[in-house]
Design a protein around this nucleic acid. Structure first.
Lengths: 230, 230
DNA sequence: CGGTCTGTTGAGTACGGTCAACAACTGTGG
DNA sequence: CCACAGTTGTTGACCGTACTCAACAGACCG
């Protein structure tokens, strides 16, 4: 047994409406695992022996280029599966996952995927959906990188992060995990210097606020305007 | 009946080893359709009522950005399924397909996909594989765009095209369909001017050759060196 | 209280985009 | 067959965005 109660799953969108017995069956082969801030559930290139469901916290998925530069693929929030890319074709993880805050996950052995997928068709169709969404997202990013200036990409990234992982605070929405200029740069393909200049300008204009590795989106309307094209 | 013999499928990699009866069953609901050079099997945003298998020719998949710029997602070669992204989540085509040379396709109504997928598990697992490959490719492109200069991206694009759609000629490999500087630019996120300058330089150095909309890769070794980093 | 991490700011530079002009080739219709 | 229009490719001048590098200032942590 996993020591995890089915109630932790029942609250997550992907499992809404599942029967209790099914949730139990899904949970049986899983175990819970906690990761400290900075710890890595898996590294790019390592054998993909497990897949994960994030229960609480935030996990960063990044890739290393051949010449040692890092780019951030996405941030994973509670309720999302990760480490599943491997189930589809590869035997090693295509990216590195790192907990950016203390995070709680469920872990299944990869070998059990076919059995689970057969028992719960909703799982594999959900996987397809997720892949479709990621493919669309990746294509959108290619287009952005090719056609849009850094300023727009940055505004867009902030809005996306606020929408996905935002926590309402007075006067805006705070991005719910520490996020440095360096990391923002690695998300949008820019240097930390360019990011720093833009954020500073926006802060003095009142569009955003924040402290060390903390960002609050204050005026998402004006950021949207920048993201679209002034 | 489709008027297409099962022998046209038997020669394509995805169908190697299929039983004759299965091929016939797969072919039954399909019909053949020819597209002139320049004709579009489908347009971005249109209802996705069909999916396609390219038998012969070359098809370009492109997307239009909100502000009217075009970017080329990929080139499709014989034996590849296309127009299937819709089967996964969307009801409209996410991109436009255009025949860049006269092309021959098989067409199935989208509505029949679930039935076919159920009857031939190899089809849906092939789809997953294809999606995985495309996702990996899209991610690789994001990384390229973010970290590599135009010169490298162009060299890489030429090598990929030559490998995928190359026809050996004396002294090199010719890309098997007309390809303008404009289109190369739209593939790698650059202007036709930058592409023109680079190709000219490479032509005088003997790395490539070509005429109007024709490109022959002569020295793939040296192009590889450029693609990696001199 | 030093060391590390994060952020700011400035100066210089270059890659690649924009725009304009023209040349060469292709296909079409009179 | 030629004239013409359309497409494709080349080249030059200019310029701006964003990168590189350097120096420094706070914030956080042990």
């Amino acid at each position: 047994m996993s020591g995890v109660d089915r109630s932790v799953l029942a609250g997550l969108k992907p499992f809404a409406g599942w029967a209790a017995a099914d949730l139990d069956a899904l949970l049986a082969p899983a175990h819970a695992r906690r990761f400290d801030k900075g710890a890595a559930p898996f590294e790019q290139g390592a054998p993909a022996d497990s897949f994960f469901l994030l229960l609480d916290g935030h996990v960063q998925a990044s890739k290393l280029t051949p010449d040692g530069r890092q780019i951030i693929v996405r941030y994973i929030g509670p309720g999302e599966l990760f480490g599943i890319a491997a189930q589809i074709r590869e035997t090693t993880y295509p990216a590195t996952a790192k907990a950016v805050v203390e995070s709680l996950t469920l872990v299944w052995p990869s070998s059990i995927w076919p059995e689970l997928a057969a028992k719960f068709p909703a799982l594999s169709s959900g996987l397809l959906q997720a892949f479709g969404a990621r493919l669309a997202d990746a294509n959108a990013r290619v287009i952005e990188m090719a056609t849009e200036p850094v300023e727009r990409r940055l505004a867009r990234a902030l809005l996306k992060l606020a929408a996905q992982s935002g926590r309402p605070v007075e006067g805006g929405v705070e991005i719910d995990f520490p996020l440095t200029r360096q990391e923002l740069g690695e998300m949008i393909g820019a240097t930390l210097f360019s990011v720093s200049r833009l954020l500073k300008a926006w802060e003095t204009e009142g569009l955003i606020a924040g402290g060390r590795a903390r960002i609050v989106v204050r005026r998402s309307d004006r950021l949207s305007a920048i993201a679209e094209g002034e």
